[in-house]
Design a protein around this nucleic acid. Sequence first.
RNA 1: GGAGAGGUGGCCGAGCGGUCGAAGGCGCUCCCCUGCUAAGGGAGUAUGGGGUUUAUAGCCUCAUCGAGGGUUCGAAUCCCUCCCUCUCCGCCA
Length: 423
Amino acid sequence: MLDPNLLRTNPEDVAAAVGRRGYKLDIEQLKRIESERKSLQVETEQLQNERNTRSKAIGQAKAKGEDIQPLLDEVADLGDKLEDRKNRLNAVQEQLRELALGIPNMPHASVPDGSDEDDNAEVRRWGEPQAFDFEPQDHVSLGERNGLMDFETATKIAASRFVVMQGPIARLHRALIQFMLDTHTAEHGYTEINVPYLVNPESLYGTGQLPKFAEDQFHVTEQDLYLIPTAEVPVTNLARDEILDGETLPHKYVCHSPCFRSEAGSYGKDTRGMIRQHQFEKVELVQMVHPDESWNALEELTGHAETILQKLELPYRTMALCAGDMGFSAAKTYDLEVWLPGQGKYREISSCSNFEDFQARRMQARYKSADMKKPALIHTLNGSGLAIGRTLIAVMENYQQADGSIRVPEALTPYMAGMEFIC
RNA sequence: GGAGAGGUGGCCGAGCGGUCGAAGGCGCUCCCCUGCUAAGGGAGUAUGGGGUUUAUAGCCUCAUCGAGGGUUCGAAUCCCUCCCUCUCCGCCA
């Protein structure tokens, strides 16, 4: 959520900023509702004040044993009037809240212009896609070779967009998780954390998945809980309604979790293989930082994710998302795209964003240092470090041999009991 | 799942329809006293919103005693629903 005060006092600037990402802010509507809110709120509070004052007087009169009937007659119609104003005020405030919750974050000045992924800017590139002296297969044919990956059975026991993995591939999948957690905790200073995979609606409001993206979530209606679409949700919400000690910032968490996404609206997209699944695993990096530090932190966090790709020796490029391609809550996002020989292109494997105070405001996540009179909003960031399923694919496709076997990346052999090839 | 108890300010803990945003204690901040890492005295010490304002100063005001409804001129106090915590029993990875 944007600063309501900014929205009130300077809607033109806000409109211009969010306009860069293709969001049309109706300034006239905003101003109209806002002025209505103001007059209604002032009136309502005056009435409340009157009621409080008079009720107090009644109490005092009664204590002295005076006749309070005349006083009661005086306030007879106050209640109805107040009730009416309150209802109208609530309606207007709700309208305003919905409007504010629906406005995306303002892109940072350094975010490139553009409307879709074609306008994303390449920031840097690492590694060379290797030349194969045979026709490289994609992960689906590589995985199905010995029944290591089974999409049909997954469809039988669940639905499409799920997978069953077995044997060394299942182990490689686990090895990637261990490797990433170990790297981020030992080398990058993150604290490993384990969190609930079902969260309440408040948490999804906090990070911005609700109210706008309800159809993307798996909802357990009986208990009104949601399967997490990413560990970002439970981890970032650790700070919800908290005042963190400023001296303890930054808080850096690394969290492995499954992620559940309905993928509504992506029918027919990436239907083959493990690229886009309803359930996948991810090692997520989350940082809660001092507002002055978030831009440094974004560069740092992106670098942490890149380190994983470098250690796995997977070629990738770093893209700065253009204004029109960024997620709802982000002020700036870097995507890491890994080279997939099976597709002959770079595909997203990580997304690292600075949300500034956008999520923090929704969550009321604040910090306070000794020299501060009042608490202030923290800044939040997160990034995949990395998506496990897609990393697995990348390893399979980039490390495949002519015979269809897969060489185990050196960084992973300690986690594979020394196994060098998956046959 | 069954039976009970309870959710109040940073913490502990009173309050059981009126002058309560809330006694008291602890903690914290400032001041005083004290010739010494103790003790004592005094003052202060919740958060969020709105209005006014150049102002994150001041002033005015509203809301908040787990959450949401209700009764009432008036609710921390009464009623209803929900959530959470604790104790005992049952079940169970």
